[in-house]
């Protein structure tokens, strides 16, 4: 009877849950009862064993990865020679269960989208700046032109082939009403003809009298043109 009572208190004694009086009674009984002494020794051995495995954690560090690894090994062991597409997708998805792979994949996606956006917006910005500049650039001004009803025949009548050749493009600007569109540059060109005498002579392809006659002719028209260009009558 005493042994039955002390059998329960032996377990409580281990955990330090007995009062001093109960502990003294138990110690006295164990000293005299061989069976209870053996039970107490077994309990102490059990405590020592439990203490020795207490440092081992039952939790896995990377449970998902471990699961994936174990599952992969199981599948590998069970796998037939040729894998079906579903199995391949399963394997790929198991691969993507690994946190490292998931983070790397996310980084790749973010990097690709970000770099495309950056390049694309840089280009848009450059085009915007360029368009802004082009819009600010004044449209090409119409060439300053002056219309005159001049005696174009005077120029046409110059028989010198060199001079005609030079004036040819300008003669073509005669309009249907007989007026001539003369650019300011043309006016300048005609004006310079006045000073052409030396060059005509220097090249020696015309005699002095012929040159003078030509220059007089052209100069006459040039002066007329310049007078008009300057707002004269």
């Amino acid at each position: 009877m005493d042994c039955e009572r002390f059998d329960k208190t032996l377990h409580l004694y281990r955990r330090g849950e007995l009062s001093d009086h109960e502990a003294a009674e138990l110690a006295e009984h164990v000293r005299t009862c061989r069976r209870c002494a053996e039970t107490q020794e077994k309990l102490r051995e059990l405590d020592r064993y439990v203490e020795s495995v207490r440092g081992i954690s039952p939790m896995l560090d990377e449970p998902e990865e471990s699961t994936a690894r174990v599952m992969a090994r199981i599948r590998a062991a069970e796998a037939p020679a040729r894998k079906s597409p579903k199995e391949m997708i399963d394997r790929l998805m198991e691969y993507f269960l690994k946190p490292g792979i998931r983070y790397a994949s996310a980084a790749v996606v973010v990097f690709a989208v970000a770099s495309f956006s950056l390049q694309y917006f840089t280009i848009l910005q450059s085009i915007g700046t360029l368009e802004q500049r082009m819009a600010a650039t004044p449209a090409p001004r119409a060439k300053p032109t002056v219309s005159y009803a001049i005696e174009t025949e005077a120029i046409r009548s110059t028989t010198d082939r060199h001079l005609l050749r030079t004036l040819e493009p300008y003669q073509d600007q005669v309009q249907s009403d007989g007026a001539v569109i003369v650019e300011l540059r043309t006016l300048r060109f005609l004006a310079t003809l006045v000073d052409a005498r030396a060059s005509f002579l220097a090249r020696g392809y015309m005699d002095r009298d012929r040159v003078d006659a030509l220059i007089r002719e052209v100069a006459k028209n040039t002066r007329t043109l310049i007078r008009f260009a300057n707002g004269g009558d």
Partner: peptide
């Protein structure tokens, strides 16, 4: 790049849903 990004996104979403 579009194919790779789309594939990665599909895989990431699918594995998340499966888990």
């Amino acid at each position: 790049t579009g194919i790779i990004v789309a594939a990665l996104l599909i895989l990431l979403v699918a594995t998340t849903l499966r888990r």
